[in-house]
Design a protein around this nucleic acid. Sequence first.
RNA 1: GCAGGAGUGGCGGAAUGGCAGACGCAUCAGACUCAAAAUCUGACGUAGGUGACUAUGUGUGGGUUCAAGUCCCAUCUCCUGCACCA
Length: 800
Amino acid sequence: MKHNFRKIEEKWQQKWEEAGIFKAVDGSDKPKFYGLVEFPYPSGAGMHVGHIKAYSSLEVISRKRRMEGYNVLFPIGFDAFGLPTENYAIKTGTHPRKITDDNIAKFTEQLRRVGFSFDWDRVIDTTDEDYYKWTQWIFLKLFEHGLVFRSKALVNYCPSCKVVLSNEDSQGGKCDICHSDVVQKSKDVWYLKITEYADKLLEGLDHVEYPANVKQQQVNWIGKSTGAFVDFTLDGIDEKLEVYTTRPDTLFGVTFMVIAPEHPLIDKYAGRVGNMAAIEAYRSECAKKTEFERTQLVKDKTGVKIDGIEAVNPITGKKIPVFIADYVMMGYGTGAIMGVPAHDQRDYEFAKKFGAEIVEVIKGGDILVEAYSGDGEMVNSGFLNGYTNKKDSIARMIEELEKMGVGRAGVQFKMKDWAFNRQRYWGEPIPIVHCKECGMVPVPYEELPLRLPKVENFEPGTEGESPLAKIESFVNCTCPKCGKPARRETDTMPQWAGSSWYFLRYIDPHNDKAFADPEKLKYWMPVDWYNGGMEHVTRHVIYSRFWHHFLYDIGMVNTPEPYKKRSIQGLILGPDGDKMSKSKGNVVDPLDIVKDYGADTLRTYVLFMGDYGAATPWNDNAVKGCKRFLERVSGFVDIISEDADTQKLETPFHKTIKKVSSDIEDMKFNTAIAALMTLTNDIYAVGKLNKEQIQIFAKLLCPFAPHLSEEIWEVTGGEGFLSVQSWPTYEESKTIEAQTEIGVQINGKLRSTVVIPTGAEKEEVFAIAKADERIASLTQGKTFVKEIYVPNRVVNFVVK
RNA sequence: GCAGGAGUGGCGGAAUGGCAGACGCAUCAGACUCAAAAUCUGACGUAGGUGACUAUGUGUGGGUUCAAGUCCCAUCUCCUGCACCA
């Protein structure tokens, strides 16, 4: 049979759609499988081969699950709010709604042509008002439960996009969208209190199957540390200066304090400060630097001593100087630290430069050379002298501090609250009204969705206010509480809002009474397997876990963790080994591959090209190799025979069923496909195969190359769709060959191979090996010291 | 600096401590062809040998073991994430 991929791919895509065989069934009594892939952002560029690889893993697993008798939910949708669309709208003067609709149509067409077995009845679009109604609903629930607050803060601001960015969106000091430098700006910001869930997010990791590096990255991101808050006093002023430290037991070694340049203490006591001019100069210098510069540059410690203010060590009563320095961040801990130069390298460098005293309190290092942060005996530390265990000395110090009322055990997280507003048009409006009388008032639930007004001009204001602020009819409203005139919030939610709960909406996408029916949620959740990219580990995955934990706490979902298992796909690099990018011109368009080689070839290649989790360069020739493989499979149809010779293939078939089945579960798609290629070579070596065998082969190939497999199933007289036939099974006993070739080593070096009956006794194997001509001649006149046999693998004779 | 991962032919990559290089690509030779493409057959880590074979070989240096790509110690390089986090 000729592999006419153009004809058969169109044919089967149409048939699948007409028959609706990939639709998930609500209320089924079959076991369920919920396979999830990260829904795409529908950009104007269309799909990328990376999307194909990202979806292919769960496509294969979902197809296998269906054949194994599961009720499978394998949905797709579009995460369509966001800046790229809005920027394109501004540039072209086209409404983002139209751009989004066009792009979704384009993506949909592309996805269909690859033959993915998505349930197309459940497609969602985060910009659809029936969808974002529920995004707003969840926001109001968060608001109702005190997890939303507003605060003036230094924020990451992108001057080019004119938008406030979260920490997650400005990693490395660059805007995630346009890559310009981010600056610090003071703004009113909506925050979601994700930090309140830091412990739950950390603890939840113990109950999910994520790859070790993914877990580790989330642990680092959350950055929990335990320690203590200690109150220093200021000499002659009735004021506390609170610090956070992980080593309160080094309190006897504190010789100075440092506060962040932005610390409010300075302005409060400006009158007492003798060198305010110098301090102001230093502060404005710091303000010019971005956070990136402040944290990234390897540089000398800088700072200024505050004249006229001294702190008092609560334990020793000693007076110590106070500095401002930019190595202390306002955003972590209390914005103030106690300087322990003997045991903290940063404090050490600072002390050296500014001439502060260095007092050793832990023995074990050489404080003349560098700070010592290891363990050791406590010295110069009053009641702590003689302690050698860090845990004990910390516990004792906290006990003392608590007794004295000047300190307490505490926990800090690196994770910060989630900045949750953007000054942009193309996002979910934040459903809050500002009333002079009542303050911030939530829009009543029954008024949702709060729709985006129609706008002609999407340009944000020069000071970064939202385009919505210019729409009087939107802004002016009445307070839902007191009925007096009020103003609407004009900021919108960030890109990450819609994707924080989308997997719940797939379960019941058309429900207009709730975001999803509780019974359906109970049946389908949690997501059994979620595949996506490494880049979302500290953003989308954390955010969505947070929302889901919250929904669990208010009784809206039945599990705390949304995703049971997470896997990560590796990047597809350009043929030159560089990351694919338009500017390098090394981007491969999946539709070109579909046109030239077929969807089955594309699907097979992206999984065969290498380890699924690793970054692998694209190789056009290797694509042809996969095409050649499928053509050889196609040729099986012409060599069907009910000849007895085909029995030679029994063992290879059972072996392959076993290997393909387990490799798919382990995401070792490359070796699964290799096993099918090996079997193909075996089949051509025999020269024929029977009908049962070709149908088994088609089933094994079906998750990878479903169009060709369906075609083979049909032309060999298979009934119905192959995609819903049962997955082949194997018998362990039939995966074993009657005879096995094993290696024979002398002193660990391979010298010969012999054929033994599989599972033969040790003694028999030794006899066969010794009878081998080469072995016999090499061991002639030598003494056998030791004889080792690894069943069905290798024999090793140790001789002298 | 901290954490995680990876270094295997010309290339992508396989190998529960047990015959390194499965499978594919590229290359070379042969068949078919007027010829080319496609297809089929064979060779294909490196060095030596006509040859059966011999030596050598998984970043580097040690070690454990009858046996190491795999385990241990040290070291170099690369990738990914975090990073003055007190």
